[in-house]
């Protein structure tokens, strides 16, 4: 886990969640800017996943490695999954799904950080 990436991902996903909530209340469907935002977020998450996976393979792994890897996989799958949702639902509920996913993403990053550095 790269600390500054974790922080950046959390800030970015919370910002995305806020933005998508505003879009929901403005009755907008998912638009290209949302997709670009999710793309950037996804790249950040993939970067973090690759760095963490490299560390795990290199021997620097948390105590509950299986748990950590499964959380990591979920986090990587989350942004494309909610983008697909945004394509299916061409109404204000598309951004609502993305907002929810971004909040879950921020929580999952906290959980990953706890697994990586358990506070005993």
């Amino acid at each position: 886990m790269v600390d500054w990436l974790t922080m950046t991902i959390q800030m970015a996903s919370l910002a995305m969640a806020g933005w998508c909530l505003v879009s929901t209340f403005r009755d907008q469907p998912m638009l290209v800017p949302h997709l670009v935002g999710m793309g950037v977020l996804w790249l950040l998450v993939i970067g973090q996943a690759v760095a963490s996976a490299a560390a795990v393979v290199g021997g620097d792994r948390p105590a509950e490695a299986a748990m950590f890897v499964s959380y990591l996989a979920t986090v990587v799958l989350l942004p494309p999954a909610c983008a697909v949702w945004g394509f299916m639902e061409r109404s204000k509920w598309g951004p609502a799904v993305i907002a929810f996913a971004c909040l879950v993403l921020a929580v999952l990053m906290v959980r990953l950080e706890q697994l990586w550095n358990p506070v005993a």
Binding site: S70, M88, S91, A101
Partner: peptide, 24 residues
């Protein structure tokens, strides 16, 4: 459709979270 789509998303996440956590 509409709010239903959001509910499906939230339910899926909770299905995954609860099942994965419990099985583990």
């Amino acid at each position: 459709t509409g709010p239903g789509r959001l509910l499906v998303a939230v339910y899926s996440v909770f299905a995954l979270a609860a099942t994965a956590r419990g099985s583990y």
